[in-house]
């Protein structure tokens, strides 16, 4: 029998900064409940003494000299900004 905890869809949507409609919440909670039930299988694996794998590349630390490299111009960096003025991104007011 599954011991999968109930996914608190309101809390997770808030953490993910994702505004979901009531319909989406109900649907995702049910669908992800099924997926989580499936994922419960992982609790059967004996992982004692096993190191986690973050990625499979035999590269572990990469150093680079701290030298400035050519980058994007301000125009190129801002070409996709939804709103901009004087080489700055315009955002809603955050301080009264």
């Amino acid at each position: 029998m599954s011991t999968a905890p109930q996914l608190d869809i309101d809390l997770i949507a808030k953490l993910a900064r994702l505004a979901l409609t009531p319909g989406e919440k109900a649907k995702f909670a049910q669908q992800l409940g099924d997926v989580l039930h499936h994922i419960e299988q992982l609790s059967k694996v004996d992982v004692s003494g096993v190191e986690p794998t973050a990625h499979a590349s035999p590269v572990f630390n990469v150093w680079a000299d701290d030298i400035a490299q050519p980058g994007l111009s301000a125009e190129a960096a801002l070409m996709n900004a939804p709103a901009q003025r004087d080489h700055m991104v315009v955002v809603p007011k955050v301080v009264e």
């Binding site: 996914l7 953490l15 997926v35 994922i39 609790s43 096993v50 986690p52 794998t53 973050a54």
Partner: peptide
């Protein structure tokens, strides 16, 4: 949503860390 859940406080070890260990196997 699923990814945020498996990384969230209280579930990280049970899901994400465990999955990384199974990945090793």
């Amino acid at each position: 949503i699923l990814g945020t859940y498996v990384l969230s406080s209280g579930y990280y070890d049970a899901y994400y860390l465990r999955a990384q260990k199974v990945r090793t196997l």
